[in-house]
Design a protein around this nucleic acid. Structure first.
Lengths: 116, 116
DNA sequence: CTCTTCCTCAACCAATCGGTTGAGGAGGTT
DNA sequence: AACCTCCTCAACCGATTGGTTGAGGAAGAG
């Protein structure tokens, strides 16, 4: 799990972390304490979740006295969308348009040719 | 990790699984053996990866004699894009447009008001 | 200075993950 | 029937994850 895309998908695979992102998008920057309040886990656990989001580049943190305000970063979201869209579109083309069917027929011919 | 979105993000967090998706999009349906060939892990391991993708709804499998052809499904990709786009857009709005700045100023006022 | 608040780090534990090997079922061929 | 191919399941192992508690650093308030 080295690359950025893997870290980003991994980060959003957790419902709590997705909820943190949702609330940051809705309410803007927030401190760790504010973010942890609605959950019934320790503040340390939320701090860990935020670290995962930060290492994935989905979030950044600045400093404001004792606070460490958490800030949503849009860039890596773009990367993820780009990756998904690329293959979703190809999948749709392949299986809903005519040349998808033609490609399948060609594959069948190839198999039968190899078998005989 | 119960819900579909979590499973989907989790599935794509692995580079090998993303590569499987990429190859299915590029070449169309394929058997487990064909998919496993380029990797230096066992066929069983690839079968496990495919099971993860299948349980995430990103892939489906039919039957063709001994083969279990793997087929890419576009639907859940749409779900993921929808989720990401929703919050990416809000993040951009919030931090690049004027009312983002205004909201920040309002938040600052609120803090100072509470402190005094 | 002391005290309090906000947060992170370290150590630990149970559960899950990602791989392995071995066994075996489903299906086709001879 | 016997045999081969393709694939999955089960058991196991080491590494990682997601949570806990306890200790402590950084920054302001009294």
């Amino acid at each position: 799990m080295a690359d950025q895309l893997s870290r980003a998908f991994q980060a959003l695979a957790d419902p709590t972390r997705r909820d943190l992102v949702a609330r940051l998008a809705a309410d803007g920057d927030a401190s760790v304490g504010q973010l942890a309040a609605p959950y019934d886990v320790s503040v340390q656990a939320v701090s860990k979740h935020l670290k995962v989001l930060e290492e994935a580049g989905l979030v950044s943190r600045s400093r404001d006295a004792q606070r460490r305000p958490v800030h949503l970063e849009a860039e890596v979201f773009d990367l993820m969308t780009a990756w998904i869209e690329r293959y979703r579109r190809r999948a749709e083309e392949r299986y809903t348009r005519l040349d998808g069917v033609l490609a399948e027929l060609a594959a069948d011919d190839e198999e039968e040719g190899a078998a005989s």
